[in-house]
């Protein structure tokens, strides 16, 4: 049994600091080295560059629908009838699982543009089927109305509206 002198204590402290500094810096370096290996799985520059799609609406007749591809996903562009619009607007929002007025989901009421991917588990819904005249997802039975809102079934949210703008009356740019 010995007692430690102040010098020894100092020595121990200096040593501990050294170990912590070396270990800490080593850990920081390792973490920094790991980042490129994670980041590489994110979309590459060429994929990001393709992030907009333009669509020509002039050929879509009232009541019909066009599917275009944006970022590898189907985009439904529906030319809605008066009836579609009326039924989309005439809904008690309180009854909806994901309440959202139709006016928030369109730029021009006759054109509904949305990502055609079921918000449940990613299947592509079928048009003109289901109980609400909109879309029906065959995978697990989600029903969407003429505004693409979820009405019945397991999906938690309305079909997503992508960012888009009208370039002129007949052309939109998605993304």
């Amino acid at each position: 049994m010995t007692t430690t002198t102040p010098e020894e204590e100092n020595g121990v402290k200096r040593r501990d600091f050294l170990y912590i500094a070396a270990g800490g810096l080593g850990a920081v370096g390792t973490a920094a080295a790991i980042w490129p290996f994670i980041s590489q799985m994110n979309p590459s520059a060429d994929v990001l560059a393709l992030s907009t799609t333009e669509a020509d609406l002039s050929g879509i007749e009232v009541g019909s629908e066009l599917t275009v591809v944006w970022q590898g996903k189907p985009i439904f562009v529906r030319h809605r009838t008066e009836q579609d619009i009326a039924s989309a607007e005439d809904v008690d929002l309180a009854t909806l699982p994901d309440p959202q007025p139709d006016s928030e989901r369109v730029i021009k009421p006759e054109w509904l543009v949305m990502i055609g991917i079921c918000t449940h588990l990613g299947c592509v819904p079928l048009k003109g089927q289901g109980d609400y005249g909109g879309w029906f997802c065959p995978c697990h039975g989600s029903h969407y109305d003429t505004s693409g809102r979820i009405r019945k079934g397991p999906a938690p949210a309305n079909l997503v509206i992508p960012p888009y703008e009208f370039l002129d009356d007949n052309n939109i740019k998605i993304g």
Partner: peptide, 16 residues
């Protein structure tokens, strides 16, 4: 630069 500092620290630890 980082590795130079790290090598210096590791060397000090090794000596200790």
């Amino acid at each position: 630069l980082f590795l130079l500092i790290l090598a210096g620290l590791f060397y000090a630890v090794k000596r200790k």
